[in-house]
Amino acid sequence: MLRDITLGQYFPGNSVFHRTDPRVKIVLTMLYIVAVFMADSLLSYLIMTAGTILLIAVSRIPLKTVTSGFKTILFIIIFTAVLNIFWTKGENLLFSFGIINVYAEGLIHAGKMVLRLACLLMGTSVLISYTTSPIALTDGLERLLSPLKVIKLPVHEFAMMMTIALRFIPTLIEETDKIMNAQKARGADFTEGNLLQRAKALIPILIPLFVSAFMRAGELATAMECRCYHGGEGRTRMTVLKTKPLDWILLSVFIAYGVGIILL
C-alpha cells in the first residue's frame, strides 16, 4: 500500500517543457501566475484560457492526469463559486429567494474565479510538477536563489536537505512497511477501532521509525564527512546548467502572454 506513493508527480517525457532549464521554468511559472492574476477583461480571460490549453497540449501530459489534480481543490473551487454567486451584488437580479439574491454579475464573477483557479492549477502543475523531476527542481531552485547567499541565506543547505529528504523517502517508506509487518506479526491491529484507537496503534510504528531515522542520519553524516563534504563553499557541480535558445524563446513567449493579458 505504501509503495504506491510516487515521488512528487513527475511524469517522464520528452516535450518542450521537459527539456526546459529548471531555472527558466521556475521563472516561467512565476510569470504565468502573475499573468493569470492580472486577467480582467473578457478578452484577457480568453487569452488566459487559450494559453493554458496550449500549455497542456505542448506538454503532452494526458488530460486525465492534468485534471486529476482537481479532486484535491474541488472544495475550494465550489466554496469560491458559491461565495461569489450569493454575495456579489449587481444590477441585474436573476432571482430572489428570501434574503438570498442572485445577480447576473455574481454568476459571471463566479465563472471567472473558477476559470482562473482551474487555469492556475493546471498551468502550474504542467509547468512544474509534471514536467520537472524533483531533483531538477531542487537543483534549479538552488542555482536560481544562489545570489541570496550574499545576504547569508542558507540556499545550499536548504537544497541539500531537500535532496536528502527526496533520497530517503523511498527508504523510509520501505522501513515503515517492514515495521508494520513486524508489529502485525505480534498481533498489532491498524485497521479496527475508532480514530483514536487507530492513532494509538501507530505509536509502535512511529517510535522505531524515528529511532532508525536518527541512526541513519548519524551514519549518513559520517559517510558524507568521509566524502569530504564541508558545506557549499568551494563546491563545484558535475552538471552545468546552460540556457539554450529554446529557453529564451519560451521566456519571450511567456512575457508576451503576460503583457497581452495585462494590456487587453
Binding site: L7, P134, I135, T163, I164, L166, R167, R216, E219, L220, A223, M224, R227, C228, Y229, H230, R235, T236, R237, M238, T239
Partner: peptide, 18 residues
Amino acid sequence: NQLVATIVEEDIAFGPEN
C-alpha cells in the same frame, strides 16, 4: 546510509564536487 543523491551518477559526483 551512504548514498546522498536520488540519481546514481549524481551520487558518485558528490565526492569530487565537494
